[in-house]
């Protein structure tokens, strides 16, 4: 079975959370139990050769995102104007029937595995996700140990 973000060992927790969410949504349709909108949300994955960071940052200008890696500490900051996509000349606040999307400055810092090599970083903005690939230091890569038959 392929492993992807749907992988979750806490299936039961997920079910309970979903139940709670549904209950709370019944009370307030806008906010879930997790409260405020986290922006951007981040997923981190690791393979034998690299560490992958997925920064879910829809609707930002990639030129205005500050991304840096110092040792194994990754920082991402920037600003998003949620009203830009409206394409309206003059935005009148009273004309919003609903406003849930994040707007303003954001900044997040996260610690990556120590094996990352800050010299080997690549970042790309695709469909609203900043994908950061960081190579691992050669000596820190997990080595496969072969078991020989005697």
């Amino acid at each position: 079975m392929p492993i992807n973000w749907t992988w979750d060992p806490f299936e039961e927790f997920e079910r309970i959370r979903a139940e709670l969410d549904r209950l709370l949504e019944w009370v307030s349709p806008v906010r879930s139990i997790r409260g405020e909108e986290i922006y951007p949300r981040i997923n981190v994955g690791e393979s034998a050769e690299e560490v992958l960071v997925y920064i879910f940052a829809p609707g930002v200008d990639p030129g205005k995102v500050e991304l840096s890696l110092e040792g194994n500490v990754l920082s991402v900051s920037g600003e998003r104007d949620s009203e830009a996509e409206l394409g309206v000349k003059e935005v009148r606040p009273e004309r919003f029937l609903r406003q849930e999307r994040f707007s303003g400055k954001f900044s997040r810092v996260l610690t990556l595995p120590e094996s990352v090599d800050p010299e080997k970083v690549e970042a790309e903005y695709r469909n609203g996700i900043i994908v950061v690939r960081i190579g691992k230091k050669a000596e820190r890569r997990a080595r496969k140990i072969e078991v020989k038959a005697s």
């Binding site: 973000w5 749907t6 992988w7 979750d8 981040i42 981190v44 690791e46 879910f56 996260l110 595995p113």
Partner: peptide, 11 residues
């Protein structure tokens, strides 16, 4: 790729 830290669950 093994998930290390996950804030976005599901696709």
């Amino acid at each position: 790729v093994r998930p290390e830290y996950v804030e976005v669950r599901g696709r």
